[in-house]
């Protein structure tokens, strides 16, 4: 059986990859998200960020009193372009046959 242990299941980020990240001096949740891709898949971190924080606290890389998730990016859950196009959001969209 594989020894790999997954922290982020959407992006297949393993515990060994987190340790690699820490060894490179990247120790904050924002840096780790970007270096490993953790939390950038369909769940957008909802499954893995708490686990990441716990691992960082165990490694002494994060103070539990100041632990924060990375910046949440909308939408809250995946939404199709069709749904967003049908909602009346934003400025009037120029029709395709516009002049100029």
């Amino acid at each position: 059986m594989s020894e790999r242990r997954f922290v982020c299941r959407c992006e297949d980020v393993t515990l060994a990859e987190l340790d690699h990240c820490l060894a490179r001096g990247l120790a904050t949740v924002e840096e780790i998200k970007r270096y490993t891709g953790l939390g950038t898949g369909p769940c957008q971190g909802k499954e893995c960020v708490a686990l990441l924080c716990r691992i960082l606290i165990d490694r002494g890389a994060l103070d539990p009193a100041t632990a924060q998730p990375f910046t949440a990016r909308p939408p809250l859950e995946p939404v199709t372009f069709a749904t967003l196009a049908a909602a009346s959001l934003g400025p009037a969209t120029t029709p395709a046959k516009e002049p100029g």
Binding site: T40, P42, R73, P75, P78, V79, T80, A82
Partner: peptide
């Protein structure tokens, strides 16, 4: 604008902005 130019993406989902 995107769905007009590239109709096939209508059913693709936006993950983050």
């Amino acid at each position: 604008t995107l769905v007009q130019l590239m109709p096939i993406v209508a059913s693709m989902k936006v993950l983050r902005q």
